[in-house]
Every structure is written in structure tokens, then in C-alpha cells.
Design a protein around this nucleic acid. Structure first.
Lengths: 203, 203
DNA sequence: GTGAAAACCTAGGGGCTCTAGGATAGGGCT
DNA sequence: AGCCCTATCCTAGAGCCCCTAGGTTTTCAC
């Protein structure tokens, strides 16, 4: 009987497809083995267990995502960079729901070590924000706001949570513009041109 | 042998506790039955299946969440209302991670019918935003931005996604303030006091 | 008390994860 | 060519989960 020629990389690649088709919860070792015409026990030679497979998929997908974002952001700054970042992010999340879900799981520290994707993501994100002239801790606060918004928006849209009769794409563009506005007029202690300038740190 | 005295409501209440303790994925019919000293097959007299239990929990938790928000928002308007809304939302999500996760699942239409929680949520959210003087479709866009941001932020924080050495509470307050700023200066076609005033609808 | 409905049970099928240990294909070595 | 060795793939089986079918027992209304 001819061998399937499995290895970890092919497994992860197939897992990515399966996750997108069947959902992240549908990514199971049994289904993956079935896809290769192999028994599920055979997979344990290439992958430690299900969590290991998920973690590898997370890193794989995280790399894909940041690659796309890097291409989109390249050569842009300020508002253009933010728009490009947001567009690439949302496009990936919608095109690859299973992969995208994988990128959000908490993964084992031992695997993170040799994963440049995490660092690249931080670099690109902070780099994009540097154009807004924010300093710590505002920078961290802004990153958290962006991450939260992008993630939450994509999750809700992907899950069909936006029922209103309004093109989500248009809403998204408005949201990104609102974020750009928030970043340019980021609330600080003293400075400010708008009407909202109270003390805010000690609420 | 004495009976456990099960019924659907007690099951849902216990499911809420179990989900918070073991995570939403740890909410299983077997574990729930074990908690009552009963065989899992016995639960099917009160609940159609696992999805049904999850949907009931979703409505239960959704009601709790919006009740808390309603109390927090009552009597407030504008920025105060937004801050109270956000605080109640985040507090519930962090205190009850399993319940909160449940509120985000896609549930069967047949159960939604007699669920006032959904309508109340929409009413309170739109009511809070009316103070900002937004009209459709900006209102829908703003609601989506808020939902996305609140949800994404809570999910990431709850999953330990915010590793930086910065009190998340402070970041959250800043994020809410930034959203308030974005809402007060919501990007429209013509009006605007800031530097960002291009056409934006047809990007 | 008695009858009926509701509550709970056993038995069992099917899917999933994962371990232990056995067979075999293929490449490298002599 | 023949041999060995290792990675590859297998069978067998345990444990947990969901869910169905059908039987037994408690409880309540009459």
C-alpha cells in the first residue's frame, strides 16, 4: 500500500483548509486523517496532539495574516496605513474564518519562541501608529483599542452578528475613519482642541 | 432513590455556573448531569440537546448582561452613559466568562421569538447613542463600532491577549474616552472641525 | 388507592482523542 | 543484491462525549 507521504507541514496546510471549510471546531484529527485516507492514530507521528496541531496552525495563519498586512501597509503612513492595515485584516478574517479563529487561541510558550510572526506583528502595528505621535502608555492603549476593535468587528461580522440592513463594508470604513479621528485627537492630560478635556486618569 | 428535582430553569442556572468555571467548551451535558448526581440521558427530558441548552444559556446570560447595563446607564446621558455602559459590559464579561461567551453564539430563531432581551439591548444601545445626535446610517455604524470594540476588547483581555505591562483598566478607560471622542466628532460628509474632512463614502 | 404523567434509569451506537504495540515500505549500507 | 533500520502506518482498545430507544419508578391528581 502506497504511503500518504505525510509530514507536519502538509498536515498544517491541510488543517488550514479544513478549518476554513468546517470551522475551527470542525478541525479534528479524525477528519484530517480521513482527508489523507489514513487512520487518525497515524497523525500522532507528526503532531503531538490536537492542541499541538492547533498551535501550529495558529502560527501558520498568524504569519499569513501579518504578511498580507505588511504588503498592504508597505509605503503608506498615517491614515492610509491604517486603512490598508484594517482592510487587509478584515479581508483575511472573512476569507479564512477557520485560520483567523486559530490566530486568536492562546498557544504554548515553547512554540512561540521561534515564531517571528509575533514580533513582526508588534513591529508593524507600532510602526504604523508612530505616525500619530503617541508615546507610552498611550501607544499601548491605542494598540489595544485597534486590536480589540478589529477583532471584535470581524468576529461579529463573521458570525452574522450584524443583522441590520446596511452594507458592513461601509460601516467598516466609517469605523476605521472614526478610529483615525480618535488617534489623531487622542485624549491626553492637558492638550486638546475639542470640547472634551477633563482629567480622566483617576476616574 | 430521591429525585434531583430537575427542571429547565435549574439546568440553565447550573449550566451558567459550570460554563463560568469550566469555560464555555467545558459546558457538557455529562458534566452537568454529574453535578446533579444524575445520568446524562436524564437531562434530555428538560432540554432538547446540547445546542438547545447553549441557546437557553445564551438568552439567560444576555438578559443578565442587559439588566446590569440598564441599571448602570439609568439616569445618565452622553459621555456618562457611555462610560457606565462600557463599565458594566466589561465587568460582566470578566466576571462571567462562560456566560459571556454564550451570549455571542448564534442561536436558533425559534427561541429568539419570545426573548425580550434582544430588543431591550437594541433599545438601550440606540437610546444611549441618541444623545450624540447621529442619524441613520451613522447610528448603525456607530452601534457596530461600539459592539465590535467592546466585544473584541473583552475577548482579548479575557483570553490573556494583552500581555503588555499596563493596567488594562486604564487602557479601557482611554479606549472608552477615545470612542466618546469619535462619537462626538463622527465623520460626516461635510461638517467637521478637525483636519480630516475628505469624501469617504465612495472609497 | 389507582391511574397516568413525569422523572429517571439501563443499554447501546457512533464520534472524538490518545496510547501501546505490531507490521511494512524505502533508503542507505555493505 | 541483500540486509537492516527507521520512519510510517496499522490494529486494538480505553475513556469521554452526544444522543436515542425503551424500561422502571416516583409523584401527583383524582
Amino acid at each position: 500500500m502506497a504511503r500518504a507521504g505525510l509530514n507536519t507541514d502538509r498536515l498544517v496546510a491541510a488543517a488550514a483548509e479544513l478549518a476554513d471549510e468546517a470551522g475551527f471546531d470542525g478541525l479534528t484529527l479524525s477528519a484530517l486523517a480521513r482527508r489523507f485516507g489514513v487512520k487518525d492514530a497515524s497523525l500522532y507521528a507528526h503532531v503531538r496532539n490536537l492542541d499541538d496541531l492547533r498551535a501550529r496552525l495558529a502560527l501558520h495563519a498568524g504569519g499569513e495574516l501579518i504578511d498580507r498586512i505588511a504588503v498592504a501597509v508597505a509605503g503608506r503612513a498615517g491614515r492610509d496605513a491604517l486603512t490598508a492595515f484594517a482592510g487587509a485584516y478584515r479581508a483575511y478574517a472573512l476569507e479564512h474564518p477557520g485560520r483567523y479563529t486559530a490566530t486568536q487561541i492562546r498557544i504554548d510558550q515553547s512554540l512561540i519562541a521561534d515564531a517571528p510572526a509575533m514580533r513582526r506583528t508588534a513591529e508593524i502595528t507600532y510602526g504604523m501608529l508612530r505616525g500619530y505621535g503617541l508615546a507610552e502608555p498611550d501607544l499601548t492603549d491605542a494598540v489595544r483599542l485597534l486590536r480589540g476593535t478589529f477583532h471584535g468587528y470581524c468576529v461579529l461580522e463573521s458570525a452574522g452578528g450584524f443583522g441590520a440592513d446596511r452594507d458592513v463594508r461601509l460601516s467598516w470604513d466609517k469605523a476605521v475613519e472614526a478610529l483615525h479621528l480618535a488617534l489623531t485627537h487622542w485624549p491626553r492630560e492637558t492638550a486638546g482642541t475639542g470640547p472634551a478635556d477633563e482629567k480622566t486618569e483617576d476616574r
